[in-house]
């Protein structure tokens, strides 16, 4: 892949008081790839993704999206530049139904509320877009179910659908499979796989099987630093990664 990366970070550092959560991370995302961030708890993965989505400002370094720095922009401005993200905690609007959740996400990127008010056509486009993403996420049968009444797995899927509805050029997904059962995990993995041809994804995930199956490239973080970054095969074969992360992971699993 010789394309220009759509997102680049340079020397990205974030300190909380005396604690360095993310230290000098250089990292890039190529268009169309799934880039997974792997690392043990406390490695700074969530902080990194919060830096990428502009939810917290870096102490040092910068994030370039399509060559433009995102620094100083508000969360919503960054969202409207095309960075969509899902949160680790399920973050849907429980009193709206599934379709309305997606419409809410789609509307702001298709001319906003006031546009939909003025024009029936706009309102229809929004509805179509919402239905389309529900289809992608296999949730059409739930369109009119209040989000609060859906299963946990479905809610997570809905969250991905909402990110899709905002038509992002880059999706940041924070542990989309967290807390899911085996079956649901497979389902979401398949869903993410089906997105690969259309979207660029940055993925934080604990589930190793899914990561190795999905990711084109993997960045492994330990204690806020990048341990190794490269194509999936390279990471799979890496001694360093095996020692530090997989080894630890293995110990945890057997302990």
């Amino acid at each position: 892949m010789s394309q220009e990366p759509i997102l680049v970070t340079q020397g990205l550092t974030r300190r909380f008081g005396g604690l360095v959560a993310v230290s000098d991370v250089g990292f890039d995302v190529l268009p169309g790839e799934i880039h997974a961030i792997l690392g043990p708890n406390g490695a700074g993965k969530s902080t990194l993704i919060n830096l990428l989505s502009g939810e917290i400002p870096p102490s040092e370094g910068e994030v370039l999206f399509h060559g433009k720095p995102i620094q100083g922009k508000s969360v919503r401005q960054i969202a409207r530049m095309g960075i969509g993200r899902s949160h680790q905690k399920t973050n849907i609007f429980p009193r709206l139904n599934c379709l309305q959740n997606c419409e809410l996400a789609a509307r702001i990127h298709m001319g906003g509320v006031f546009g939909s008010w003025r024009s029936r056509q706009r309102a229809r486009q929004v509805g179509e877009r919402a239905l389309e993403v529900l289809e992608t996420c296999h949730l059409v049968h739930r369109a009119y179910t209040p989000a609060a009444d859906m299963s946990y797995g479905e809610q997570r899927q809905l969250q991905i659908a909402m990110v899709l509805a905002t038509a992002p050029t880059l999706m940041l997904l924070d542990e989309p499979m967290a807390g899911m059962g085996r079956e649901e995990t497979v389902q979401v993995t398949e869903l993410l796989e089906s997105l690969t041809d259309r979207y660029t994804l940055v993925l934080i995930e604990h589930d190793m099987d899914s990561v190795f199956r999905l990711a084109d490239r993997i960045t492994v973080m330990v204690d806020g630093c990048v341990l190794e970054s490269g194509p999936t095969e390279q990471i799979r074969a890496s001694e360093k990664v095996r020692d530090v992360y997989l080894g630890r992971h293995h110990e945890e699993a057997t302990a």
Partner: peptide, 27 residues
């Protein structure tokens, strides 16, 4: 209306609305 939907969204989770791209303060 749609506007009410956004207000509802803000009530439920203002941060999420911002992450979706809504200028919540304007609403």
């Amino acid at each position: 209306s749609y506007f009410g939907q956004v207000l509802d969204g803000i009530h439920d989770n203002e941060h999420r609305m911002q992450a979706l791209g809504y200028a919540t303060n304007g609403y």
